[in-house]
Computed example of a mutant assay.
Amino acid sequence: MGDPTPPPPTPHPAVAPLSYLLGTWKGSGEGGYPTISSFSYGEELHFFALPGKPVISYTQKTWKLASGEPMHAESGYWRPKPDGTLEVVIAQSTGLVEVQKGTFNEQDKTIKLDSDMVGNASKVKAISRVFELVNGELSYVVQMATNLSSLQPHLRAVLKKL
Rank of each mutant, 00 (worst) to 15 (best):
P17L: 00
N135Q: 13
K101W: 06
K101G: 14
Q107N: 04
S19Q: 15
E98V: 03
T94K: 02
T62R: 08
P8M: 01
S93H: 00
E74S: 04
S67A: 07
L133I: 05
G102D: 03
E69W: 10
P11W: 00
L45N: 13
Y20K: 06
V124P: 01
V15D: 01
S115M: 01
A14G: 03
I111E: 00
Y41A: 01
S37N: 13
V142P: 01
V134F: 09
Q100R: 14
Y41H: 02
A66V: 11
R156Y: 15
S122R: 10
E74I: 03
N147G: 03
L159G: 07
M71D: 09
E132H: 15
P82Y: 02
G27Q: 07
T10S: 11
D108C: 09
M71P: 01
L96M: 07
W63R: 15
L65R: 08
T24N: 07
L45E: 12
P6H: 00
T59K: 12
G23C: 11
R129M: 04
P9S: 05
G76T: 08
Q100S: 14
T62N: 04
P13C: 05
P11V: 01
P82C: 02
A49K: 10
V89R: 12
W25T: 05
V89K: 06
K123T: 14
L45T: 09
M71R: 10
G29K: 01
P9D: 01
V130F: 01
G95P: 06
I127T: 07
L159E: 09
K161A: 09
D108A: 13
E44C: 07
G42Y: 09
S57E: 12
S38K: 12
S139Q: 14
A126K: 10
V118I: 14
H12Q: 03
G2L: 09
F48K: 14
Y20R: 11
P54I: 15
G68H: 06
T35Y: 08
L65P: 05
E69T: 12
G84N: 03
Q143K: 13
P34F: 14
K161H: 11
T59E: 15
A14H: 15
L159N: 09
P51F: 14
L18I: 04
P8Y: 02
